[in-house]
Design a protein around this nucleic acid. Structure first.
Lengths: 343, 343
DNA sequence: CATTAGCACTCGGTGATTGAGAGTGCTAAC
DNA sequence: GTTAGCACTCTCAATCACCGAGTGCTAATG
């Protein structure tokens, strides 16, 4: 469909625009070292590319700017991922550097990703639902107060304070914890509320009277939480992008970022591999003039979570794609190792 | 120094400007129902007030705008705190509604504060340094991995995963935890590193060989943390304030907000009571055209932490001061009750 | 026939000019 | 002491001319 030369010109225009954020004129292109045609020739080609929808003008006598279709073509055909050794090393080090806890690594990776790209990065943690309860613990602080601590088999820890009903003695508490541990160890978190309600409540009532009130509080505290966690990096980076000189864009972007559920939903749409969503391809209104690039990470082939970068449609696709690729593999590898040790 | 009438006019101007964000003209003032002088008279008074430094003009023929000195006078003499019943109720409910955990309450209060004011709120948590260790717990996840959990006497929980050196058997681990609990229970967190290094290390070495490596990791994980925690509310609220139409202001504000240490330092300067810092009175450059209002909360008369609101110098001082006052008392009360139960 | 030089044309951006409107300071009258 | 009146100042928005970057088209070129 496109001639060799058109491809080349399209590529040059997009590369140039990604770098400069300025409309690209025919003269500027003709001066590039790898271009040997006159500006007039290029003008003709650009007119054709515009007609086909790959380029746009900001006004009738301006230089050309890539359209969303142009970007789409660019990422699909033109943007061979370009990996930088130093970037790769940075990511590698951050992931390998003591992989003890997923939360740490995710947070750190999100920060590095946003630091080296100047975009905003988001990492979607694995669903906690299929993690299993490892241990339940109650630490009493005083006669009235105690902390329940819940540890999952992947090392995640949740805790919640509660006040001890007067009727419950400390030996009762101990009994209760023992029962719970006995019965609930190994139960997937997602089944916990149900298990608690059916089997356990009955059992407990036999041992301890009137424990329901305080127990409800604990249950609620643990299971109303978001079932999924997001790690952000560089939330304010977009402020340095020229396309965000408009306060209203900033506003709508941030109000969107506050809605974690929506973001999680967006990120979950990726299924294995890297997905680039450009401008209006995005379903969420607030990022209809931004691009979202997502990649997944896996454990034993099963998708665990998503890494994402949000930036202007004028994004360094090549670099970002390669970065996400690297990080995705690093995280998958680390998860695999960690899991193997954990068997 | 100021006549009755000048006071009145100053007050009206500031109130009006706080509401409208527009320079206030003499004619507008003369029309207010509680003002019975002509615009000419008011012009004369305004000229005097300007000469004294309480008012400013944005240009030679504009209406007047309060100067920082004007705001200062306003909060010191004119702004009798005006408490709204519904605000008070909101705060009261949020604080009372299940005071089991400080973190929850602080987070929720910060959010409510920012929601009802449209400014940004920050709550500085109590120094964790003088809380004491209540219990240490190690939960093994597998042969290689484990989680250390540290509970303080005020219900704060910290945890960190680590990998178990191969030399350590699970019975060794148990021993280690027992020793640690024995020796460290009741020790103030601030003394923990020291204690660990002096007494405990020696003791442990006798029981367990080569535990140092993994132990160092734990130590580091726990004690490199910020010794103080900040809870933010409404970080994006300032975007709705007209004074933040300038992207550069937004940028400098956010880059300041990312520096938690500096913010903590600012908030710590308050000592009992409410403190209003207007514009250039602030030491931090990034908020030299903003106002910061702080209040402390106490436990048994001892200052525990700070509540703060950041907004434009054109801030609803009356309302904010009264809100902070209310919240400060509510939090102090709640802390007191909680502490009493905890004895 | 593809390429290119040349040129008229278009449009955004800048700076100067203008008039309206809001507000002031000052003076003179009350 | 207060106020009406008025000249003056300055912002803001609209208008205009002009420049420059860039285009589209045509005609000449190899």
């Amino acid at each position: 469909m496109l001639t060799e030369r058109q491809l080349m010109i399209l590529q040059v225009i997009i590369d140039d625009f990604i770098e400069s954020a300025q409309p690209v004129g025919s003269r500027a292109i003709s001066k590039k070292s790898n271009i040997s045609f006159s500006s007039a020739t290029i003008r003709n080609e650009m007119a054709d590319l515009e007609e086909m929808g790959f380029l746009e003008k900001t006004h009738s006598s301006s230089g050309r700017v890539p359209s969303e279709k142009g970007y789409r073509y660019y990422v699909d055909h033109l943007a061979a991922p370009r990996s930088s050794g130093s970037d790769t090393k940075l990511i590698h080090n951050s992931v390998q550097d003591g992989f003890f806890e997923f939360e740490q690594i995710a947070q750190k990776s999100a920060e590095i990703l946003s630091d080296i790209t100047n975009y905003t990065s988001i990492i979607l943690g694995p669903e906690v639902l299929d993690t299993k309860l490892k241990q339940l613990q109650i630490v009493t602080l005083s006669k009235q107060n105690a902390v329940v601590i819940l540890v999952t088999d992947n090392g995640h820890v949740e805790h919640r304070s509660f006040s001890i009903p007067e009727e419950i003695s400390s030996s009762d508490l101990e009994k209760m914890v023992n029962i719970l541990n006995d019965r609930l160890r190994g139960v997937p978190l997602i089944q916990l509320p149900e298990k608690l309600n059916s089997e356990i409540v009955m059992l407990m009532k036999r041992y301890i009277s009137d424990f329901e009130k305080s127990f409800n509080y604990i249950k609620q505290a643990f299971f109303n939480e978001n079932p999924v966690k997001l790690y952000f990096g560089g939330k304010t980076n977009i402020l340095t992008q020229p396309e965000f000189n408009d306060i209203n864009k900033v506003r709508s972007f941030y109000s969107m970022m506050e809605n974690e559920n929506e973001i999680a939903r967006l990120l979950k749409e990726t299924h294995n591999g890297i997905k680039v969503t450009i401008g209006h391809e995005n379903k969420a209104d607030a990022i209809k003039d931004l691009s979202l690039i997502t990649a997944t990470y896996q454990l034993n082939g099963e998708q665990m979570g998503t890494i994402a970068i949000i930036g202007p449609t004028r994004m360094e696709y090549k670099r970002v794609i390669s970065l996400l690729n690297t990080l995705s593999h690093e995280m998958s590898d680390a998860l695999y190792l960690w899991n193997k040790n954990n068997e």
